[in-house]
Amino acid sequence: MSKKRILVVDDETSITRLLKLNLEQTGNYEVREENFGARVLEAAREFKPDLVLLDVMLPDMDGGDVAAGLKQDPALRKTPVVFLTAAVKKEELGAPEGKIGGRMYIAKPLNVKGVIGVIEKMLPK
């Protein structure tokens, strides 16, 4: 079984690096990091990920806009995007993962087990 390709987007390099290390340690994923919203589309076209983990609050671009850009590319249209967000209140949350505006999200703080759970659920079968 080939490794699934995951594109991890967050402006914090230490977080993307540790996510990469954690995910790749399982032996099931190949991870590429990206820390700038503006470069995500290009990176995705090149890397052809099976799933994108995308921080909602990027300093240079809104995560939602980045996702919309991916949606417009015919090659990436069907690639699932999972948002990473810290700006979710407990009252709205109910659970550490769920949907915002119909999109899947994972609430920060992230733990590896939770992230892998969501990735496995969202990967195209």
Binding site: E12, L18, L19, N22, P109, L110, N111, V112
Partner: peptide, 8 residues
């Protein structure tokens, strides 16, 4: 977050 991911 970096620490928790590191511990994981």
């Amino acid at each position: 977050q970096t620490i928790t991911l590191g511990v994981d």
